[in-house]
Amino acid sequence: MTTMSNTPPMDPVLVHAYADNELDTTSALGVAREIEASPALRAELARTEALRAALREHVAPEELPVHLRAKIDSTLGLTKAGSHPTWRALAASVVLALAIGSASTWFVTQQPPDDRTTTALVDSHVRALMAAQPADVMSSERHTVKPWFAGRIPVSPVVVDLTSDGFPLIGGRVDVIATAPTPTLVYGRRKHVISVFATPNADGTEGGVRTLPQINGYSVVTWHRGDTSYWAVSDLNAGELQLFAQKFKAAS
């Protein structure tokens, strides 16, 4: 870390691989640190993410002309060509709608099955994103957010201030995970939202920050602190979410 200023500047191409989630966790973490330290790399990441989002929103896969499909069917004399044209057209449009409707559709087939807790956490995060506000108490002031929980649930989570690390506090909410009311903190990173869930750590294990397999394009990391397990969920890169978790862990 201390030798960072002496090392040659990182190849900016890696910022793209990082934004595309194509780096393994260790490399991603290294790249996240480099980005953190360099305004130029941060700007490259911001541009890249803005572009990817704009393309996802505005440039969909092309719609296949119906007459073209018919032409291919008849040229090759495909057996079912005449018999189920409506079904085929319907299937094609469903596939297209899925592809357009959700960028995360692309990832679905790549996901290994994951345990139910993680899936429930991602679901809660996505639900919160669809609400008018991602938090029930909106405040960047941890002295406002922490007492808000006290009146609602028995456990009050540790609330840390990571504004200077580029992760401002947005607020808090209460989620229900596997029938248990769970305190959730909400942090921001540029335009991304991070949900931090705190659940009881039953077996009392400690350890470093672990990156779990992505679910529907959402990154999940987890770590333990005393009798609490923390889970951070976001559409950020796995590396950047790792960085967040380490800063959170260090500050708590």
Binding site: D11, P12, P39, A40, A43, A46, A50, A54, R190
Partner: peptide
């Protein structure tokens, strides 16, 4: 590839990124 900081502020948001987001 040459990099510019695009006038980044502390959060990494740049006027350039804003412009791209609005395309």
């Amino acid at each position: 590839i040459e990099l510019t900081d695009g006038g980044a502020d502390a959060t990494g948001l740049t006027p350039e990124a804003e412009l791209i987001a609005k395309a």
